[in-house]
Nucleic acid binder design. Structure first.
Lengths: 191, 191
DNA sequence: TCGACTGTGAGTCAAGTTGTCTCATAGACT
DNA sequence: AGTCTATGAGACAACTTGACTCACAGTCGA
């Protein structure tokens, strides 16, 4: 009866998503086709069509399965926490698969509404968490922000993202410090 | 005799590049195929194969034809010039086609060496010009940079790029000021 | 103006891909 | 044990891809 609750259905979905993710990471989004996903997942081609009739929707959903543990649960002092989280972000962006997801999202969002929705979700979570942390830091008197917390979030993440995806240069500690200093005036000593 | 100097050859090349650029901008890189380019350019399919046997090379070359007038010829005071140039960059990134080129470059570079080479070229020009301008500003005592000029370039461009491609939020003047302030201590008053 | 050269468009072709449909099977609930 | 239903295998037409051929016309030297 219940189509969605059938274990077989669930198993197939998982296998398809896993295969799509692997193909995306290893060979890029162009490699994510119904045929290749089916082959990699070891299931019938028709089954992939049954689950996701369109590849772009599958691709968008496959990317959504990548976990996003960043900027969660801030701790005081915010400056130290921020440095640690931005370092973690930089390390993540050094990984090929994370870069693949981020850039595919940014690009696909321009033409595919499903992809754009994922992008918005992704960016929203990052901005919101970071902005909340900065707001609480400002409330506690730890920092005097030069702009809104939303803008500050982009000032912190932007340089690291640009370094990783466009310049492809390593992100070191000084670079992260400079990004943090750009947000406003911190009350504690800079180091 | 001379194949390359034949006006017919040149005309076809231009038509192909123009069609490829249009398709990329309007429908994304997936739409840039030999068949569609030929149709849009109003030429034979075989001709496209003769000029560019592989689509990815055509795509990479098509993107290289987009002009890059940014950060050229800095003028004193550098801060004002920088504000104007970053504003121009932000306006450019609001255009769909520029975003298309930038994100396609960032993404394609992960799997396609030809694309990666274009990315490096693109990023290199931006960084170099900006770094030179900042160095001369530092030499003139207009600014005391917090990091290397290369890093400062990423600190200036990164937030704007991130805002436009990932967050998709408007870039206002305050945002640009904050980005400029992040580079170091400016001797002239902030506004 | 003529003639040789060569890039081009149209067309053909085999090989592969795409999306859809059918059917027997086996796994899942009652 | 019996009923349902997601699945794999396969067949299928429509389309795409890359390679090739050939008549033609734009280009350039004489």
């Amino acid at each position: 009866m219940a189509t969605e609750s059938d274990p077989r259905f669930h198993r197939s979905s998982e296998a398809i998503l896993a295969a799509a993710r692997e193909l995306l990471i290893e060979q890029g989004p162009a490699a994510v086709t119904h045929a290749q996903v089916a082959k990699r997942a070891g299931i019938g081609r028709a089954t992939v069509y049954r689950h996701w009739p369109r590849v772009d929707q599958l691709l968008a959903e496959a990317m959504a399965t990548v976990p996003m543990p960043l900027f969660d649960a801030p701790t005081a002092p915010i400056r130290d926490w921020l440095h640690a989280e931005l370092t973690a972000l930089a390390r993540l962006l050094e990984l090929h698969d994370v870069r693949a997801v981020a850039t595919t999202l940014a690009q696909g969002a321009l033409w595919d509404p499903a992809m754009d929705s994922r992008r918005g979700q992704f960016a929203g979570v990052l901005s919101e968490r970071l902005a909340d942390a900065l707001d609480s830091a400002a409330a506690a008197g730890e920092v005097e922000l030069r702009t809104t917390a939303q803008s500050a979030a982009a000032l912190a993440i932007g340089p690291i993202y640009y370094r990783s995806t466009i310049e492809r240069e390593p992100v070191d500690s000084d670079f992260i410090d400079a990004a943090i200093d750009s947000l406003g005036v911190w009350s504690a000593p800079s180091r």
